[in-house]
Design a binder for these strands. Structure first.
Lengths: 336, 336
DNA sequence: CTCGTTTACGTAAACGATTAAGAAAACCTT
DNA sequence: AAGGTTTTCTTAATCGTTTACGTAAACGAG
């Protein structure tokens, strides 16, 4: 590995001069700087990240917290797409992306300790249990943090607009004439709470009655539980005309149940999903759903994190709301 | 941040002693070492990764090369699952995982340069264009490398047993009485080549004739192209009784075409997929497919990489073949 | 009591970069 | 021409570790 020392020798200057020339400091002669840069390029020089980090306490490395309780983390297209986008934007900004875990080396360490150990310049908390004390500790530390889909005091967070998304869906259903809408929601998270609230609220605004038994609980990304909920809904005497699923993938479980019962979508029953994953628009009929703009969410998360890293004083914590987009699909029938 | 210096002061010993005690060197008194370790823990000491890396040239960090041409990389469950497994095993071994890209900071750099810059102890090449000169350069460098699903000279590679997988599928089809088997394959990669070869070979062994027009080309993870191929196959006068799809997800494209034509699976036509993604077993009927053992592949990749990092001399390049598992599903009809 | 050995610890140089402070040369200014 | 600026480069300290080497004390053997 060629170091600054090698360059300094070849150029007949001191290491300090090389450093400054390469970093574009002003107190180096035009020609000297040019020459040094040329030689550096020729010799295939690249700075030693460790040395630089040791001295500057900046690593150009951001951590992503991706704790996948029950393996569903990365498997879920929402999160993998998010990660992809975070990664892309980080790269654009000149940052590397490292996963943060709670065990490195032989020793267990908290997320915060891990971040400090690696001297991450900042962290995106993409998918984690926000009640985990270890996560809270990290959020409250001095390390710049951006959270996704969860708000913490004084921290920037990027939020997929779930309220709007569910509202759009329900309004769309209402426009199509639906008045008997069932809602299957995922496990209890802040996202779920917002969706449920938005569902009730929108229904109320539209004067749509929501019997308790129209609201069922299931798990995200789990077709089986949504299938069960579907069965319960179908067993009702006042069957809903439309079932809203927790997410596109879970809908597959409901789809199977509907198939078994010989119910056609959308002729016999209408359905909606959430997420707008690739699959949802491949299905026949295409699923009526809301595409969450993972590209923007990831981009904003990384961009704002980098901004707050490079400009700590100017940084203000804010909540950035990213709207999704209603994909009408063909899984909802117009009721006249 | 508490450093060794702080500990040394508190303990009244030199920094060297602290270092040795913490690293379990033998030339430190039992009690001294114990005491130092105790104080270190109390003070919440964690080594500075940069300083350590600078000195030892070891980072406990492995890179993963994940180049997703056409964004399909991480979205593909095969790869996201792989990544997940690599990450898990790396963590177990005390390593962090960082994405390797070709641009960091303002400057473009090759993958190799990136690895050197970050001083990655090793790299898993999980998903990349193996013809890319930049990738080849990395593979041929001094950095320990493990490749997945592609063999390079003198480098360890972990291979999903595609030959066996396709063989199992075809044999299964033959057992069910199929003699007219169409095969839609993905774009040209070494994996594809193996699958095609295995398909022809197995058919030959079983005395199954394969007309040229039974073999179609499509793209992985692309339902549309598989849908097109399906149409072509259905237009044939001597229709196949079974269509093998490039992967489970692509099958969804074929499924739509079959649906449109009113063809029931498996009554009217049999189908198989490949990968064994979550979705494949949710579908009704469950897809006959081969589950690629991504858990093992990722685990082996990480484990062998770490082994060759920590034990460079003992390391021997080898090809590790990981068998998949046939999932019979219900998408193949028994023909009598 | 000396002289090797062992044990336990300290000294100091290194890793590769950054940066404050200093110094030499060149350039004005009057 | 003397003094002040500016420009350009160097010196040396520093970041937190690791590690080869040195050394002092304690021990046992003869």
């Amino acid at each position: 590995m060629v170091s600054m020392k090698d360059i300094s020798i070849k150029c007949g200057v001191s290491v300090a001069t090389v450093s400054k020339a390469l970093n574009g400091q002003s107190d180096i002669g035009k020609q000297t700087a040019f020459h040094i840069r040329k030689v550096a390029k020729e010799m295939g020089y690249f700075p030693n990240a460790a040395a630089r980090a040791l001295k500057t306490n900046r690593t150009n490395n951001i951590g992503v917290l991706f704790v996948d309780k029950m393996q569903s983390g990365l498997m879920h297209e929402y999160f993998s797409s998010l990660l992809n986008s975070i990664k892309a934007e980080a790269e654009r900004g000149g940052y590397d992306v490292t996963f943060i875990s709670s065990n490195i080396g032989q020793s267990k360490m908290s997320y915060l300790e891990h971040c400090r150990y690696r001297a991450c310049d900042g962290v995106v908390i993409a998918c984690a249990d926000f009640n985990d004390p270890s996560v809270v500790e990290l959020v409250q530390s001095e390390i710049p943090v951006v959270t996704i889909d969860h708000v913490f005091n004084d921290k920037t967070s990027i939020l997929s607009n779930n309220v709007r998304g569910v509202k759009d869906l329900v309004e769309f259903l209402a426009e199509q004439g639906h008045r008997k809408i069932a809602f299957i929601h995922g496990e209890d998270t802040s996202v779920t709470q917002k969706r449920i609230a938005s569902f009730y609220r929108t229904c109320q605004e539209l004067g749509i009655a929501v019997p308790d038994h129209y609201v069922k609980s299931a798990l995200y990304h789990d077709p089986a539980s949504s299938g069960e909920a579907t069965k319960e809904l179908l067993a009702l005497t006042d069957r809903p005309t439309c079932i809203m699923y927790p997410d596109d993938f879970s809908f597959m479980g409901g789809r199977n149940v509907l198939d078994e019962r010989g119910l056609k979508i959308p002729e016999d029953i209408s359905v909606t999903g959430y997420d707008g994953i690739f699959l949802s628009q491949i299905l026949q009929p295409a699923l009526t759903t809301v595409r969450q703009d993972t590209i923007s969410i990831g981009r904003e998360a990384a961009a704002r994190l980098i901004e707050s890293i490079e400009n700590p004083k100017a940084a203000v914590a804010e909540q950035v709301m990213i709207d999704g987009q209603l994909l009408p699909g063909n899984s909802v029938k117009r009721i006249t």
